[in-house]
Nucleic acid binder design. Structure first.
Lengths: 166, 166
DNA sequence: TTCCGATGTAACAGTGCTTATATAAGTGCT
DNA sequence: AGCACTTATATAAGCACTGTTACATCGGAA
């Protein structure tokens, strides 16, 4: 029952450690947010808040396009953020488009969010400096390799060579 | 309004490319499954099917423990897989525990799933060989660095140094 | 007036969990 | 045997999150 040709996902060689590492780092980032405990702020709002802070008031449509979602999805998210008191709608260029702007409450905490963000980036940069070959270079190495031949095509080729296939 | 001290997540330096890369590779793996178009097989079932194939019939509780979920969660997943015709319940060691086993239909396709899995691993191994410094070494490098000091602590330290904090 | 553009909202889909409860079967004690 | 307790599984109900489609509204432009 332990056929070596039958891979057991639990023993996965490469993909899994990478995922675990990334999940662990994500969890640590989440812990940082939790440490700072900003009351009622959902982590999923942070990106929008920082973007509004960096770019100033944006319309729903602009926000939607910047994250590749429908206006409806963003409208709902913004509505939730408004209910939670993080954003408010101000008059836009004409009366049909409104701009989403940070509230005072949001402005009071966005500095800390930005600091957390910078700290995460800085920690990552330090981590990079500490290892022999920077992660960012590996990423671009891989990206270049995948430009030459996509991951999908590589898998398909291996598959075609596998006698158990077809 | 474009304060350089205010990070805009859309311009994120390091984390984002890594996520995008991983998402792109995930999407390619999903495409491989879609190519093979095994009717009605949800990608989320693949792991369990391969595990059952590799290890033989397992109880719900064993499956639950192996993925770190409650038995209830697994019971529901197994029920769905049973409805879809991928697994059946066979008698276990005593009458209260049942073992989850692959059906003939599942056995007919699990060879292909295993081949896809192997192909993905092989493609990954080739990709590794193609880049100057293997991803797996970077992963262990980072793991070792994080053993010395956790990512959380690194971020917290950076945060403490940030005048905008507090 | 008619249409478009921007937004809001209702209804719902789907994944993947959780808690609490139900049912049944084994185990140990008296 | 009768009882309490534990183990294994099933199921009901619901939540959190995230997203979708379809429709409604309202202001501006031609």
């Amino acid at each position: 029952m332990t056929d070596p040709r039958v891979p057991d996902p639990s023993e996965q060689s490469l993909w899994r450690p990478l995922r675990l590492l990334q999940a662990a780092m994500d969890a640590d980032i989440a812990r940082v947010y939790a440490d700072g405990h900003i009351d009622g702020l959902k982590p999923s709002y942070v990106m929008e808040l920082l973007r509004l802070h960096a770019r100033g008031p944006l319309t729903i449509t602009e926000l939607a396009e910047s994250v590749g979602r429908t206006h409806s999805a963003l409208s709902q998210k913004v509505a939730a953020m408004r209910t939670a008191g993080w954003v408010e709608t101000v008059a836009g260029d004409d009366a049909r488009s409104k701009k989403v702007a940070l509230t005072g409450k949001a402005r009071a905490v966005v500095g800390r969010l930005a600091a957390e963000w910078r700290a995460t980036e800085a920690a990552l940069a330090d981590l990079e400096a500490e290892i022999p070959y920077p992660l960012s270079r590996v990423v671009t190495d891989i990206e270049r390799a995948l430009e030459r031949r996509s991951f999908h095509d590589r898998i398909a080729e291996k598959l075609a060579q596998d006698p158990a296939w077809g």
